[in-house]
Each structure stands twice: as structure tokens, then as C-alpha cells.
């Protein structure tokens, strides 16, 4: 049985399958997504206040690469970077990928994950708090990030959230495999 604060991590082979170079196309794609989201829901970024211009280093510990995110509305940017570069951001947030995605879609509670050390944060705490509260209120669905609407959005949300739920169940059932990461 997994101890309560052990991370449900992706199996080690994922890191080998997706080296840092494989993540590079994600940067421009996620930048476009964020900017599109800012056009559609500007109030979401207003909640960030002064922290809009902060640089957030997001480090999924079970991937070979990390992200640097500046959530500055329509000037937002996302870059795929090395772990070292992410660590030099204003804010560093580290945790297993499935946990970080769970925080993004509201499945998981950020405070509970932090108290139990599943995720760790360092740097400008007020920016982390502003980001966390903004994400909480945004109720983002996968289709929001992709700019989809209608039936297609519903299919994508069902598919992506369903896949994440299955992935969480699988890594929960296979903690030994998870530790390989």
C-alpha cells in the first residue's frame, strides 16, 4: 500500500519515451492556448493581479522537462525548459504530472497536496497563491485550453478527463512501477 504522501507518479519509461526535445512543440501550442483563453475570458487573468507578470516554473517530476509560464493575458507565454532553468523562475512548483493536471482541472485540492508534501513550492508565495486561486475559480476544462465549443468540446472533455482518471487509477494500483520514475 502506498504511504499517504507518496506521489502517484508515471512509470519510468515515460521519461525515456518523451525526452526534453519531445516536449519542445508543447511551448508554442500552450502559448497559443493561453492567449486564446485570455481573449475569451479576460476576467480570469485579472484575478491574478500583479502576479500576471511573474514567471512560474512548473516542474512535473516524472517528465524529463519542465515549463516556464508567464500568464500575462494576451501576452502569455509558455516555454519548455530544462529542470535547472525552471528552478530559476520567480516561483517553482514541483509535483507528479497527474497531480499537477488534477490541480488544473480542480480534481485535487492544492492546499491538501501541499500540506501532505505531494507538491512542493518555493519562490514568491503570493504569486503561487494568486495562481492557485485563479485556477480554482477558472474551472478549466481541456476544451477551454484548446478553444473548442459545443459537442466537440464535450467529447474532448469526456475523453481527456476520463483518460486522466484511468491513468490515476493505474498508477495508484501500480506504485512499484511508479517509483521507477
Amino acid at each position: 500500500m502506498r504511504p499517504p504522501n507518496a506521489e502517484p507518479m508515471l512509470p519510468g519509461f515515460v521519461r525515456q519515451l518523451f525526452p526534453a526535445v519531445a516536449g519542445l512543440p508543447l511551448g508554442p501550442l500552450l502559448t497559443l492556448s493561453l492567449r486564446s483563453l485570455a481573449r475569451r475570458r479576460p476576467s480570469l487573468f485579472e484575478r491574478l493581479g500583479e502576479s500576471r507578470s511573474a514567471c512560474f516554473g512548473i516542474d512535473p517530476v516524472d517528465l524529463a522537462f519542465a515549463f516556464r509560464v508567464v500568464p500575462e493575458g494576451q501576452r502569455s507565454s509558455v516555454r519548455v525548459v530544462s529542470k535547472d532553468e525552471a528552478a530559476r523562475s520567480d516561483v517553482q512548483i514541483k509535483g507528479p504530472l497527474l497531480t499537477l493536471l488534477g490541480l488544473l482541472d480542480g480534481t485535487l485540492d492544492g492546499d491538501a497536496m501541499f500540506f501532505s508534501r505531494v507538491i512542493s513550492i518555493s519562490g514568491r508565495t503570493e504569486a503561487v497563491l494568486a495562481l492557485r486561486n485563479t485556477i480554482e475559480d477558472a474551472e478549466l476544462r481541456p476544451a477551454d485550453l484548446l478553444g473548442l465549443h459545443g459537442i466537440l468540446a464535450r467529447y474532448v472533455d469526456t475523453g481527456v478527463l476520463g483518460a486522466l482518471s484511468v491513468a490515476r487509477r493505474l498508477v495508484d494500483k501500480n506504485p512499484s512501477g511508479a517509483r521507477e520514475a
Binding site: 480542480g106 480534481t107 485535487l108 485540492d109 492544492g110 492546499d111 491538501a112 492557485r132 480554482e136 474551472e139
Partner: peptide, 10 residues
Amino acid sequence: RQRGKGYVSE
């Protein structure tokens, strides 16, 4: 009030 939806719902 500083906690998230997950906490509040549960």
C-alpha cells in the same frame, strides 16, 4: 475561505 473547491466540496 482560502481553501479550494476540492476541500469545500469534500
